[in-house]
Design a protein around this nucleic acid. Structure first.
Lengths: 205, 205
DNA sequence: GCGATGAAGTTACCAGTGTCAACAATGTTT
DNA sequence: AAACATTGTTGACACTGGTAACTTCATCGC
């Protein structure tokens, strides 16, 4: 088995086609009923064809989730400001980008964190998820070095930050936090609370 | 409470039996494959019997989730200290109780927040979930009145608090935060971060 | 060139699921 | 007691994930 050739055989690059079809279903089909047969159907192949590329339904899900984590990480790095003048100025856009990713890709985001058949998905994801985690970790570490962030175990702080944003994202996905309905106040207040919990209190502000 | 009688008819109180069997499966079967037929099987009835009590597979899931929220709320109220001398002293046990509920009932907890077929579960749950939310809201409101909590929109703060604990609970369920592996430091640090974000900074501490 | 090889895709099938309709058995009501 | 409504059973349908046996067809050793 080659590392990544995937050259078209006698029909096409099916593996990629399946993944893209599945991603498309996740994007459009809001109601998250994911069946392998439906994916095969939309990809124009028979229902057993996917099994030549994925040993398992779960294997495909894992693949999709990994892609999701990669994209999330990219979205966060894109949102990272060049030269933030304060912690708030750095955390806020990243947090908003995170939540936006979740609300823009609700089904994919849920998949990324779903247990899904004996948490097989979660197991294989540690590395990709960790890559996202490290974006936060890095930010907080630099903040500590710069003296703007409380001296506490960074991993604990990063856990807190990640957990909070993750929870908010889930709330937003479930529609409990839609801006049209409730305004952006809760979201901003939540982020502010997070920043206050991380930052060393300033005497003037 | 006799809100809904459900007295035994010609076989037994099947509705209750089904619910209890299902709860039992959620407790023991860690790998969350929930099939209506299996529930019926274990309850000793035919596979179609549940449909006389629940219109739908989803209806049963909703019922289970609601029970979960009720129990969670009770657990939080039980953990609430009588006369806390500080915010930390009040928040910490409640937070720990919340996380403990999640790790003790992982499948049930996941069910409570799963989208599950077009988020039908989530839709009908607003009231029960809100009851949990109000436990937090109440606590923070009193804290604000007492002058220990920052004057910020309470709902935003409560959202932040809930989201953070929820996220941590999910992490813990997924085994990324098991005390044996990583110590309780991250958990405590996360809670401390939350408290710092909520509380008005004290000059001495 | 040209068969053998084996990967990629197809059809046919299995067990298991959610759900519904028709039927049987039991308790309740008049 | 007879009609009725409730509750449970059986049997079917369409669907799913998954496997095995078959067909195609590009590639490789000769």
């Amino acid at each position: 088995m080659q590392a990544t050739p995937h050259r078209p055989y006698h029909h096409g690059d099916l593996r990629r086609a399946i993944i893209e079809t599945a991603l498309d279903m996740l994007r459009t089909e809001k109601d998250w009923q994911f069946t392998l047969r439906e994916v095969a159907r939309r990809a124009g192949v028979s229902h057993a064809a996917p099994y030549k590329h994925f040993p398992d339904r779960t294997a495909l899900l894992v693949e999709l989730a990994m892609i999701g984590f990669d994209r999330l990480r990219e979205a966060l790095l894109d949102a990272k400001p060049e030269a933030p003048r304060s912690l708030l100025e750095e955390i806020t856009p990243i947090s908003l980008a995170y939540v936006a990713f979740g609300t823009d890709n609700p089904a994919l985001y849920r998949l990324m964190f779903s247990a899904e058949e004996g948490r097989a998905v979660g197991m294989h994801l540690d590395q990709r998820a960790l890559a996202v985690f490290e974006v936060v970790l890095d930010m907080l570490g630099r903040g500590q070095a710069a003296g703007t962030i409380r001296k506490r175990p960074v991993r604990g702080q990063a856990t807190a930050a990640w957990a909070l944003i993750h929870g908010i994202t889930l709330l937003a996905i479930d529609g409990l936090l839609v801006p049209e309905k409730v305004g952006s106040a809760p979201l901003e207040a939540a982020i502010a609370t997070l920043v206050d919990g991380l930052a060393i209190p300033q005497p003037n502000t």
